[in-house]
Design a protein around this nucleic acid. Structure first.
Lengths: 188, 188
DNA sequence: TACGGACTGTACTGAATAGTACACACTGAA
DNA sequence: TTCAGTGTGTACTATTCAGTACAGTCCGTA
């Protein structure tokens, strides 16, 4: 009976797509089955705990991507300006190619809130802290760096909401560009 | 059999609470019944189309609140600074007393996206346009006003996400305060 | 060739789901 | 005191849901 053989990370990628489109609660097992082409058997083989396991795996994959492409570069940067420009570019490309949805932000809503509270907090604090570190490297005070970093991450997340509301990438890209300017701008 | 008699706006307010806590998909009819104390019969009496009707009614009520307390004051303001300070205060109080959830933002996710796309777009454009108008009154160029207004609304929305992620109102209030400063700050 | 582990599809179960039907109860007006 | 209108609670249905069970299949190794 077995037809196509997939490995776990393929399934996780497919799941991420479903969750981005339909939300975590909206993506029922039947929908997941249909849209990923992965059967019920395989789904429960890979994720014995069901949907919760699936969401955790997806979040972990997203987390790894950000760690590798955003957080670590920010942390190890010698040139703050370069690092922040790189972040903007990566972020812009990442979200415009993924339905303009941040799955961690989506997990702050609804029932699943509690289940993933810690993972969500870690994701955002990692981002904010890494960015603040780069800003301090660039010569900002600790307080100023922390504030700007927090504001920047908020602006990006809010930008995604507006981009979805407007059905428009340009809005998001504009926000990211101005956020970058503000991060690199002079102290008041 | 009938016990308590409610009117529609009470029910809508109760529904808003449920949707904020559990999300739109998460709030099943049984949960809604239980948490609002409104029976199935009444629910379908007030909202014949079911959950879609309920969500529409909730969004309309939120919309009216913002129109009255935020958008109209911004539009009719003579003193831009005052109007923007008032907006900050209203927004801060509104969201901290409502689970830090913007229901319109929540509707940009998941299945319900398409159903309410127009209402969501209207809500955000109304806000951004009203704010941009106030900024122009304050002496900013059209372009600068539009950019700052968009960035401010994005910052507020992103601030809500971070506040939920951190389980912390202070984060949100800080973001709102700095957003206000940026709105009122000098042109570069 | 045989065998075990990794993987897959399908048929099933009990619980929960949205929505319907309807009898009932209050209220104000005639 | 009747009556219509506005609500309200409950029992019901058909559907969908997450999760289980299990037989079947492919692949690498010996």
């Amino acid at each position: 009976m077995a037809r196509t053989v997939l490995d776990r990370s393929d399934v996780v990628r497919a799941l991420a797509g479903v969750f981005r489109k339909r939300g975590f609660e909206g993506g029922s097992l039947s929908v997941i089955q249909q849209e990923t082409g992965v059967g019920r058997g395989s789904l429960y083989y890979f994720f014995p705990e069901g949907k919760t396991d699936m969401a955790a795996a997806v979040l972990e994959q997203v987390s790894e991507w950000f760690e590798e492409r955003i957080f670590t570069p920010l942390r190890t940067a010698h040139d703050a300006t370069e690092a922040i420009e790189a972040m903007s570019q990566e972020v812009a490309q990442y979200f415009t190619s993924r339905e303009r949805v941040c799955l961690f932000a989506a997990m702050t809503l609804g029932e699943e809130q509690d289940t993933f509270a810690e993972a969500v907090r870690t994701y955002f604090t990692d981002w904010v802290d890494a960015l603040a570190g780069a800003l301090r490297t660039g010569g900002l005070s600790s307080q100023e760096a922390a504030d700007r970093a927090l504001d920047a991450v908020a602006a990006i997340q809010g930008g995604l909401i507006l981009a979805r509301a407007y059905g428009d990438d340009a809005t998001f890209l504009g926000i990211v560009a101005r956020t970058e300017q503000r991060l690199l701008g002079p102290t008041r």
